[in-house]
């Protein structure tokens, strides 16, 4: 007698969509079925709706630098877990796990290379490593890249993609905001160019330090950029957030960005800017 009973309804929890290793994938935004190789050729931007998928520091290096000119610096700096922090797991174990699963040492890659023949210092954050969070190592690497730019009188480009400060390093992570900004203060006085590229997502202590301090602030389309996360704001003000809130287009409209640039046009724009500021 059970056949007429209503099937239980309710929200089914669907696993978060990630890009599978399959040949075909479905676009998160527009639902278009895409041939993966085609998407990769298009720099991980959906050819139909223009959605910019997150990419790694290495991919930004490929996109921005003259072929084969980039070399990495400060690869071996590792976090020391100064608070001996334990939440539901040890921070030390969390770090080990991140190193194993990502094959990276930390949440930023720094180095130098040529862009249209111009030597620049560079950093790009890796969101896959503990949410691209900034602890002592990220701060130190960014600071060193900045100091190299000052010492050698070169430009600096940083691609930010981060959830903010790494709370497992407590006050040390907060101090990285001051540290990186202080270095940029010196760079600013030296009259050297700094281009900040903000990609999805950039929030918290990273936005509130070096990401917003570019001579030029550039974002990729649709990138979420903000100080407080949307959830925190919603909890605080107990209202729904307006459509498009904290997206790159919203920031441009409110005067926080110089421009929004498609990934495919990023190198071209950076080259133009470097020539304007350095020639």
């Amino acid at each position: 007698m059970a056949w007429f009973r209503k099937e239980k309804r309710g929200l089914k929890i669907q696993p978060k969509k990630t890009i599978p290793d399959d040949l075909w994938i479905k676009c998160d935004t527009c639902g278009e079925i895409l041939y993966k190789k085609e998407l990769e050729k298009n720099l991980m931007v959906c050819p139909r709706c223009g959605h910019h998928y997150g990419i790694s520091p290495e991919e930004y290096i490929n996109i921005l630098f003259d072929k084969g000119t980039f070399s990495e610096n400060d690869r071996e700096i590792k976090s020391l877990d100064p608070l001996k922090f334990v939440d539901r797991m040890k921070y030390a174990d969390r770090l080990d796990k991140a190193v194993k699963t990502t094959g990276k040492n930390e949440a930023v890659v720094v180095g130098e290379g040529l862009i249209d023949g111009i030597r620049v210092q560079f950093g790009a954050m890796d969101f896959s490593f503990i949410g691209g969070s900034m602890g002592s190592v990220v701060g130190e690497k960014i600071a060193r890249a900045t100091r190299r730019a000052i010492d050698r009188r070169q430009g600096l480009i940083i691609v930010s993609r981060s959830g903010g400060a790494r709370m497992m390093e407590g006050i040390f992570s907060l101090m990285q905001m001051a540290k990186t900004s202080a270095c940029l203060g010196r760079m600013h006085e030296e009259g050297l160019p700094y281009i900040s590229i903000l990609v999805h997502p950039t929030t918290g202590g990273v936005t509130a330090s070096y990401s917003m301090l570019g001579d030029i602030n550039i974002a990729e389309p649709g990138a979420l950029i903000g100080f407080a996360g949307p959830r925190v704001i919603k909890q605080t003000i107990r209202q729904d957030l307006p459509e498009g809130f904290q997206r790159a287009e919203f920031l441009l409209e409110h005067g926080m960005l110089d421009m929004i640039v498609l990934r495919s046009k990023m190198r071209e724009h950076v080259i133009q800017l470097l020539h304007f500021m350095l020639d």
């Binding site: 905001m177 509130a208 409110h254």
Partner: peptide
């Protein structure tokens, strides 16, 4: 903490803090 609200984000909470950090250092 710095206020997390719509107006604060519209007027650039992150930029205001970042600029203070840089300028205070100098």
């Amino acid at each position: 903490g710095a206020y997390p609200g719509i107006g604060a984000e519209e007027r650039g909470q992150a930029e205001a803090i970042a600029r203070n950090l840089r300028e205070m250092a100098m």
